[in-house]
Amino acid sequence: MVKKFLLMTQQPALAEQVKLIAQKAQWQVEQVTTPTGLVVKLDGDQYHGVWWDLTNVNLDTTIATVTLIRDQVMGPIMIMTRTLTDCLAQKLYQARVDDVVLLPFYGAALIAQTKQRLWVYSRLTQPKVVTREHDYSLHVEGHQRVGEWQIDEKNYLVTKHGQQIQLTPKEFQLLMYLVNNRGQVLSRDQLVNGVWGYDLLETSRIVDIHISHLRDKLEDDSQHPVHLLTVRGFGYKLV
């Protein structure tokens, strides 16, 4: 399988340099220029790692976005910066960044460093995917039902009409938050605080994207949802 990476940078020269060295390792690189663009990309596809250029991005935005995407990236998140202080390093590593790369960098060193991190992630024990049907009559605790949706909280499993629905970790967390507050109108800020636990820029877009994906996967007609409802001017609620 060809490994795919996301590069977040607004510097064309850096993007070209990274793409050239990645090509030598037979890796694919997709560039985005904004943190929100990176979040959208990750929500639509899987990547083996992220390179993040800190040059033109606010540190608070960086910390918030890395915190948001950390459980979506089962691979290295590496920050590129021209200067590094003890305080900056501490904040980045507290956000679960894997490495900090000083600019300018040596191509061979970046490839070797990334390969090492990929090896570490390959050694991690992956959670088992539950594919068998569950006997819900024997296991009531930890299960929720919404219409034809059966939600197994313990195994992070959602089924509809007996078919397993693949959700990302954040989609599952968002669904559970809505289910646990069913019938209540929740603002986008409430959803972000309850699911992501961090103040984010462009909050409404991130929430709307995740709600849209849940509707596509769970509703019979995503354009006319019967469970994941929009309350105009306020937010969302699950019924």
Rank of each mutant, 00 (worst) to 15 (best):
M1H: 11
K4R: 15
M8V: 13
Q10V: 07
Q11E: 13
P12C: 11
A13V: 13
L14M: 09
A15C: 14
V18Q: 03
K19D: 08
K19Q: 14
L20N: 14
Q23D: 13
Q23C: 10
A25F: 11
Q28E: 15
V29E: 04
V29R: 03
E30N: 07
T33L: 03
T34V: 10
T34R: 07
T36K: 05
G37D: 08
L38W: 03
V40R: 04
K41Q: 12
H48Q: 13
G49V: 01
V50F: 04
W51E: 00
W51T: 00
W52T: 03
T55F: 01
T62R: 00
I63R: 00
T65I: 10
V66W: 00
T67I: 01
L68W: 02
L68K: 01
I69W: 01
R70K: 04
V73K: 00
M78I: 12
T81H: 06
T81W: 02
T83A: 14
T85C: 05
L88M: 15
L88K: 09
L92S: 02
L92F: 08
Y93F: 15
Y93Q: 06
A95Y: 02
A95R: 01
D98N: 15
V100L: 10
V100W: 03
L103T: 06
F105S: 05
Y106E: 14
A108L: 13
I111K: 06
T114S: 07
Q116D: 12
R117W: 06
R117D: 07
L118P: 01
W119M: 10
Y121R: 03
Y121F: 14
S122H: 12
S122M: 07
S122F: 02
L124Y: 13
T125Q: 15
T125V: 09
Q126P: 01
Q126F: 08
P127W: 02
V130N: 04
V130A: 06
T131P: 01
R132E: 14
E133S: 13
L138Q: 15
V140M: 13
V140E: 12
Q144H: 14
R145H: 11
Q150L: 14
I151N: 02
D152K: 03
D152E: 06
E153R: 11
E153K: 13
K154E: 12
K154S: 08
L157G: 00
K160I: 09
H161P: 00
H161D: 13
Q164D: 13
L167E: 04
T168D: 07
T168I: 06
P169M: 09
P169D: 08
P169W: 08
P169V: 08
K170Y: 05
F172A: 06
L175Q: 01
L175W: 02
N181L: 10
R182M: 05
Q184G: 00
S187R: 09
S187T: 15
G194V: 11
G194Y: 09
V195E: 01
W196G: 03
D199P: 11
L201A: 13
R205V: 12
H210R: 14
I211W: 05
S212Y: 14
H213G: 05
H213D: 08
R215Q: 11
L218V: 06
E219Q: 10
D221L: 09
D221K: 10
D221P: 03
Q223H: 14
V226E: 15
L228E: 03
L229R: 06
V231I: 10
G233D: 04
F234G: 00
Y236F: 15
Y236Q: 05
Y236V: 11
L238C: 08
L238I: 14
V239I: 07
